[in-house]
Amino acid sequence: MQKPSLGRVVLVLVHPVTNGGSDVAPATVVRVHNQRPDGTWVVGLKVHLDSSTSSRWVKTVRLFPDEEAARANDGEAAFWPPRAR
């Protein structure tokens, strides 16, 4: 899995009500905490929402390699966006 760094953009799972109906929002990595034994990372994010509340902070969230792994997680989760083709 990629190593996160400050300023990288990831995607985070959010409640659709807080994000104009979409359950995925972009987020900027604002802190890299640590790598877990399973290879995932713990990061801090600024989430950019499509709503009147334009952003929110998430202090610690697990970062997964892809959306499928993030959705299998119980709790808040972020993942790397798919590569553009």
Rank of each mutant, 00 (worst) to 15 (best):
M1E: 12
M1N: 13
K3G: 04
K3P: 09
P4V: 02
L6P: 06
L6M: 08
G7R: 08
G7Q: 14
R8I: 14
V9Y: 04
V9I: 07
V9L: 11
V10K: 05
V10G: 03
L13N: 08
H15Y: 07
P16S: 11
P16N: 15
N19V: 03
G20I: 10
G21T: 10
G21V: 12
D23E: 05
D23P: 03
V24P: 07
V24T: 14
P26C: 10
P26Y: 03
A27E: 05
V32W: 01
V32S: 02
V32Y: 00
N34K: 12
Q35C: 04
G39C: 15
V42N: 03
V43G: 07
G44T: 00
G44E: 01
L45F: 10
L45T: 00
L45A: 02
K46L: 04
V47A: 03
V47K: 01
V47E: 00
H48C: 11
H48I: 04
L49P: 06
D50R: 08
S54P: 04
S55C: 14
S55G: 09
W57M: 14
V58N: 00
V61I: 10
V61D: 11
R62S: 14
L63Q: 07
F64Y: 10
F64C: 01
P65L: 12
P65D: 07
D66E: 07
E67G: 07
E67S: 05
E67R: 09
E68F: 12
A69W: 03
A70G: 05
A70P: 10
A72I: 05
N73K: 13
G75S: 10
E76A: 09
A77Q: 10
A78F: 10
A78G: 08
W80H: 15
P81A: 06
P81N: 08
P82R: 08
P82C: 05
A84G: 06
A84D: 09
R85K: 12
R85M: 06
